[in-house]
Computed example of a mutant assay.
Amino acid sequence: MMSSSEDGSDFSNSAERKSIKKRKCGKSTEMKVSKTLIKYSQKYLKEWETEEPFKDWLTKRENDEFAFCFVCEVKLSYKEGKIALKKHAQTAKHISRLAVAKEKPSSVTSFFSTTPADITLCQTEAKLVTFLVENDIALSVVDDLVSLVKSLPHKNVIEKVRLGKQKATNLVRQGLAPYFKDKLADTLKERPFSIIIDETTDIGTTKQLAVCCIFSNEKLEMEVDLLDLIECSDGTAATVFA
């Protein structure tokens, strides 16, 4: 028979073991809950679109929670990083379609491409053409217009431009006109020229005398420039030579 002291010791040891086991279980549960709370959710990274093997087909549409393959026209999850994207890139269907797209790009597909950069480009071109059509401007000026747009400064500067009808008128009359008139006068001082005059009437029925000059430029090409517009009381020869 065991003594009471031995019974108490066994009971104490048993209780201590249960307490330790309980604490371990509690710690394990706590760690598991903690890991669940800090679970990482992958975000779509724009730089993926420039990496192999994604650069020729990967994009992400605005307000969409999925990546998009515009070659296969399917949505792809990126919540686990590149795993699903790489799996899609290795499928036979994707490899076949991508090869066809690279070998025989469709002009229609290229024009209506779903990549963000191409969409922005198409919208910009459409806005320029629409501006020309709405204002009855000849489409032949589009080359010069594109060159002008490309020469403009950074977008931050363009956003600060405040140019209305009145300001534009003053800019032409008080700034550009005197400058180009003086520049033309300096050119005529260095080379032979002829004067051409003609009477005209503007929309307000005001009589004007157009003074033009014809001369040979540095490339030995003939040029005709407007030198001045002079208001007249009438268009008779007597008034012109008065």
Results as ranks from 00 to 15, higher is better:
130 T>K: 12
80 E>H: 13
52 E>Y: 09
181 K>S: 11
222 M>I: 15
142 V>D: 00
234 D>C: 04
159 E>H: 10
225 D>N: 14
8 G>C: 10
233 S>E: 06
90 Q>W: 01
111 F>K: 06
192 P>A: 08
115 T>Q: 12
38 I>M: 08
30 E>F: 13
46 K>P: 00
30 E>Q: 15
84 A>W: 03
55 K>G: 01
192 P>F: 10
71 V>F: 02
76 L>R: 04
63 N>G: 13
70 F>E: 05
241 F>P: 01
138 A>W: 00
207 K>Y: 09
222 M>D: 04
12 S>M: 09
47 E>D: 07
103 E>V: 07
126 A>W: 04
38 I>D: 07
161 V>W: 11
33 V>C: 13
124 T>R: 06
30 E>M: 14
39 K>N: 10
160 K>F: 01
180 F>M: 12
102 K>V: 05
218 E>T: 08
68 F>A: 07
133 V>A: 08
212 C>Q: 04
215 F>R: 02
126 A>R: 10
108 V>I: 10
111 F>R: 07
107 S>E: 02
139 L>E: 01
40 Y>C: 04
59 T>G: 03
176 L>S: 07
216 S>K: 07
2 M>F: 11
196 I>K: 06
17 R>G: 01
89 A>F: 11
170 N>Y: 08
239 T>P: 00
97 R>K: 15
12 S>R: 12
126 A>P: 00
16 E>Y: 11
7 D>K: 12
30 E>W: 12
127 K>G: 00
155 K>I: 15
108 V>W: 03
182 D>Y: 05
113 S>T: 04
14 S>Y: 09
241 F>T: 12
189 K>V: 11
21 K>I: 15
242 A>M: 01
26 G>T: 14
74 V>P: 00
146 V>E: 04
15 A>V: 10
204 G>A: 14
17 R>A: 10
29 T>K: 15
226 L>P: 01
41 S>N: 09
222 M>K: 11
8 G>R: 10
52 E>W: 03
14 S>M: 08
115 T>C: 09
236 T>K: 13
86 K>E: 06
172 V>A: 13
71 V>Q: 03
121 L>Q: 08
153 P>G: 13
152 L>S: 07
9 S>K: 12
104 K>F: 07
183 K>L: 15
106 S>W: 02
75 K>Q: 14
241 F>W: 06
218 E>Q: 08
24 K>T: 10
53 P>A: 05
15 A>F: 05
38 I>H: 13
43 K>D: 06
105 P>Q: 02
239 T>F: 01
231 E>H: 08
194 S>P: 05
218 E>H: 07
216 S>P: 00
129 V>A: 09
14 S>D: 06
123 Q>T: 10
31 M>F: 08
240 V>Y: 02
106 S>T: 04
115 T>S: 13
195 I>V: 15
10 D>W: 09
210 A>F: 00
233 S>V: 02
203 I>Y: 03
168 A>Y: 04
24 K>P: 02
11 F>N: 10
65 E>N: 14
33 V>Q: 15
200 T>D: 00
186 D>R: 14
2 M>T: 12
155 K>R: 15
24 K>M: 14
100 V>L: 07
60 K>V: 04
120 T>L: 15
132 L>D: 01
144 D>N: 06
177 A>I: 02
202 D>W: 02
10 D>N: 09
112 F>E: 02
84 A>D: 14
18 K>H: 11
198 D>W: 01
111 F>Y: 06
67 A>D: 03
74 V>N: 04
59 T>N: 05
